[in-house]
Design a protein around this nucleic acid. Structure first.
Lengths: 361, 361
DNA sequence: TAATTATATAGAATCGTTTCAATAAACGCA
DNA sequence: TGCGTTTATTGAAACGATTCTATATAATTA
């Protein structure tokens, strides 16, 4: 019968099972939860109770259960923008790892808005989620926001952004190393005149990547030409990322300073840059190599496919979950638990958009 | 203080607020919930209670609350594959609409696996979500699965797939009309020899789109060349979609039968086809126009950008949520509520990948 | 044999709310 | 004045589980 006009006949309670099986609610509870005392209960009793439970289609009322036990096997998941392609694989990693631990996430999306973040945080805390996973794909986390999180007093991890916090864990990729490797890749291919479309200065990851670039330059004596470097605006948002990069690259081209390779802040930026180059008649990779960062899904599909530095997104999601799971367990056992800052290695993924500077322009 | 070694001092209860304010728990409850009886409570009393609640940082225990009221303002959200780019905007629409109604979704991802679907469904029902939203981006929903859903007896909507069910609602795009419009677009541009990479036969949307194509052919006398039609395999999965389409298009090209336009089942398929065409030396759109369906994020970024039929994804998500919200409300007021099948219009988005067959091959 | 201890089960308290039913004062009006 | 409302507030029951404490029998040990 459709739910439309069904009489919501009360679901079976533990007392129904007690009655059906001929034992008390206490015994039923002990058996069904396999509580410590269950070891004193003989098999026949257990069987009868289990049979009764099955017959009645008994499912413990989770509210009652949580009310007593103060646990609900639920974590809060706050994304700053689900439509950012950077999120999806991380989401997958999170979901998958939670699944294995029989936890379920409540999904919220801050839309990169401060007020929305706060409202959602409040909602999640009211629901007494056991932990918080923040997927900080973008800017915006200022110091106060961090304070909000710290006072929440439940295990919290931020994925995708480093943090100076004693109580909040984080999982990030090795931005510095990744950028270093990317530049090394271009260098090995013979590129010396390299343009950079840097990320917004406000972003920690942007600063780290630039640090990696500087380090490589220092290590090898490569000259970083100021005139070939341009920054994305600070109020840059991930979805207009391509658009912004397009404009910045046009800007760059106007300077009439030749380069044989372009390194972009991230894949979206690289895609925008490639578009601008193509539009300007510069062939990629024949006349100019392009390299990105992240390895979002689109990068592999593009023509030419984009050489990039892969963030191990699924692994990052998984690592984040494991961190908070540790936190939850520590808490349940009344142990101490210190926040951890994990940094995962990146991986260079060479594809079609980069090649040796042979004929070059 | 970090949560690591904090004494989890009990949160304030309604009785604490009662004591602090000098009224009974009953009165506090009435005031704080603005229950009907609150109209008899004078302002000064209300103020004192509210002040006390604020002072103690009182948040009602949601488990206790749900235990009594049997409501939890939570819906189950089952996605068949989050990594499918088709999902993201729908997710956004769902999230946004739920937010406005102060509902929160529990996110689950079936990974296109039957067993995982079942396990998650069970978990969601155990948590007594008030409704179910299924984001069926892909195949796999066989008849039994539908039965699973029907017996759940809570408002349920499937987004992205039509259904013959008296108790389950659905929200879909007008596949037939969309495909009709797409073909019309090609036709207007002068294309007559048109190749089709059709979706898996098992998919309802695939069948509908083909129906739209047939209808257009019939209406205009356009000839559909069997030799220019090829099907994606049934066990097609969204992420290998591009790969599959690539192979299928190569297959098609081997037939050595000329065509000036190619219509793909969806955007991913179109992207794969474009790649194969480019690889084979066929220029898009100069020598061959390509059109997709869906308008996933990547389509606008591609070079050339992909002409496609946009599904109003955010609107679909929103519509789905509104359907189940109606169901929830009907249920709360003990009204009847019939499942609805909504079909939203699509929109043609002309971009660079299609043009008139002027010089053509 | 008596005193323990292990086994098997149940009654009652508890978790923190909401809500039913009750009570008492103040008010309106015949 | 008296009686029915309206206003203002509360104690106690209920929601459905878990768990503490108690009890009775059986088995073991001194």
């Amino acid at each position: 019968m459709p739910y439309s006009n069904r009489q919501p006949r009360a679901a079976a309670t533990i007392r129904d099972v007690a009655e059906e099986s001929g034992f008390s609610a206490t015994t039923v509870s002990i058996v069904l939860n396999n509580a410590p005392l269950a070891r004193y209960i003989p098999a026949p009793t257990k069987n009868r109770i289990q049979k009764a439970a099955k017959k009645l289609g008994y499912h413990p009322n989770i509210f009652a259960k949580s009310l007593r036990s103060k646990r609900n096997h639920t974590v809060g998941l706050m994304v700053f923008d689900v439509t950012d392609p950077y999120c999806t694989l991380i989401l997958r990693g999170i979901e998958n790892t939670l699944y294995q631990a029989s936890y379920l996430p409540i999904l919220t999306d801050a839309h990169n808005e401060r007020s929305r973040f706060e409202r959602y945080l409040e909602m999640l805390l009211e629901r007494r989620v056991e932990a918080l996973i923040i997927l900080a794909n973008w800017v915006l986390i200022d110091i106060n926001l961090l304070a909000d999180l710290e006072k929440s007093e439940i295990p919290t991890v931020i994925i995708g952004r480093e943090l100076e916090s004693k109580s909040i864990s984080s999982v990030t990729v090795d931005d510095e190393g990744g950028a270093y490797a990317a530049l090394a890749h271009l260098h090995v291919l013979g590129h010396r005149k390299i343009a950079f479309v840097r990320g917004p200065k406000a972003l920690m990851s942007s600063r780290k990547r630039w640090k990696g670039i500087q380090k490589f330059a220092q290590d090898t004596g490569l000259e970083l030409d100021q005139k070939l470097t341009i920054d994305l605006p600070d109020q840059h948002s991930p979805n207009q990322g391509v658009e912004d990069a397009y404009k910045m690259t046009e800007e760059l081209l106007k300077r009439k300073r030749s380069f044989t390779a372009l390194m972009a802040y991230d894949d979206m930026t690289a895609l925008g840059a490639m578009r601008a180059l193509t539009k300007a008649g510069v062939k990629v990779p024949e006349q100019c190599s392009v390299i990105g960062f992240d390895d979002v899904a689109t990068s592999a599909l593009f023509v030419p496919s984009l050489t990039t530095v892969r963030q191990p997104m699924e692994a990052m999601g998984a690592a984040g979950v494991n961190v908070i799971l540790d936190g939850i367990n520590a808490r349940a056992e009344n142990r101490k638990f210190a926040a951890v800052q994990k940094k995962l290695p990146s991986e260079l993924v060479p594809r079609q958009s980069t090649r040796t500077t042979g004929g070059g322009l």
